[in-house]
Nucleic acid binder design. Sequence first.
DNA 1: CGCAGAGTTGAGGCGCTTCAAGAGCGGTGG
DNA 2: CCACCGCTCTTGAAGCGCCTCAACTCTGCG
Lengths: 252, 252
Amino acid sequence: MTNVNQQEGGDEGSPSPGTSSHFEPQCGSCNLREICLPVGLPEEELAQLDRVVSQRRKVPQGQCLFRSGDRFAALYAVRSGFFKASTHLIETREQISGFSMAGELLGLDGISTGNHQLDVTALEDSEVCVIPYDQLEAVSRDAPGLQRQVHRVMSREIVREQGVMMLLGGMRAEERIAAFLLNLARRLQARGYSGRTMVLRMTREETGNYLGMTIETVSRTLSKMQAAGLVRLDKREVEILEPDRLVALLQR
Amino acid sequence: MTNVNQQEGGDEGSPSPGTSSHFEPQCGSCNLREICLPVGLPEEELAQLDRVVSQRRKVPQGQCLFRSGDRFAALYAVRSGFFKASTHLIETREQISGFSMAGELLGLDGISTGNHQLDVTALEDSEVCVIPYDQLEAVSRDAPGLQRQVHRVMSREIVREQGVMMLLGGMRAEERIAAFLLNLARRLQARGYSGRTMVLRMTREETGNYLGMTIETVSRTLSKMQAAGLVRLDKREVEILEPDRLVALLQR
DNA sequence: CGCAGAGTTGAGGCGCTTCAAGAGCGGTGG
DNA sequence: CCACCGCTCTTGAAGCGCCTCAACTCTGCG
């Protein structure tokens, strides 16, 4: 869950929120290479990607990676930690549109207009790899696999959001929570965690906002699931006791 | 609104639903060039795009442009007509994720896995320009503007969906309908229509599904808005009488 | 004319929100 | 040390918004 190179505050001289640092590029040997952008890239394109990904940036808990309105310059691959993405399309009303963990790409919202449209905030101390967009664009001209990979990731994001819409559009509280937990578990499992036990990095309020329900309903629904023996709860720790019955909740 | 070449069954041996036809490429002189992919492309890249977009396809009302599971081979630019896109992520439950009109791009959902994840259905007799994806990829290697444009369109789609999520996540019936009508009006206006009067191409059921509410609530909410003098209704025809008050509904 | 599909309208009930109170926990300072 | 505060979370009770069920209208069509 934490990082590989230097633990916290290794080098000083930070720009804006978060610390940037150069590092030896190594997408090819990164432990996230099977999940992140490098997936399936041939050796020579990996090397080209390495040339682009030359910087990392730390984002302490509570800090923004970027805010709505910020000039868009780079995509970010989550290296460690956990983020939330939210819109304020209408002032005074926040809508969380997703949560991101290691290996996932952030910043795609900025390409369209050249300015970011989302706020992205670290929910725990996190680190990202910086992928300057113009360099990525230039490099991927000679790296068809990489170009295609970028398209794939964007397309996946579009499809992911379809799922969220389905969740928000058609499901009741219990189904939403079930879908939410199963989704997190699946993603964690893909990253080598158990997929049975997990720690929610978001507050109940953030969960509720994301799922389109109030904090009280989140709490009640989770309690009810625990009473039914579906999960075991300990504050933000969740253990999925009966995944099959959770899945069954969605099949209705 | 109908077609250019031959009306239905002109040439036999058509592939799947819909008639395909070759045509003189002319993105540069298409009346949608300011809305569609060509936006802002230099002359020489336009020519390259023309080489890729060499086919049109008609899709009669009620027919699918593609279905979930279909092999992904091309993107489609809507030339005329109106489409709905829907998921069946969980069998038996449909969720409409969007409606598309002239100049908008369809098929982005297929890039991620190589198979489409959505059903896209024509809600009226429609026509699309076919953009074979591998050719687009190849061509955009030498056409940085085009490459960037594709990215932009995908990013815009991602951002668009954020808005829908906000709508589904946080709004009540009246706000959803208001947002829905204003969004349609804005898009029609961008295409040269009045933006005051429009004909809804979708049924109340489809509207409700998209907005995450029942057909009855859609109907009641529209009636209430009419009673309040916000809109005038005549079946599927909607006239927006007081846009400002509709906007105000969202500001809450 | 009768029928099917789309839409409207009404009545009642349920699920979620709202409002409110209190518990649990970490941090701070006397 | 514990009292106190702020924050998160839980739980209960009441109300309302939307859903469900049902009846009816309207339109197009054979």
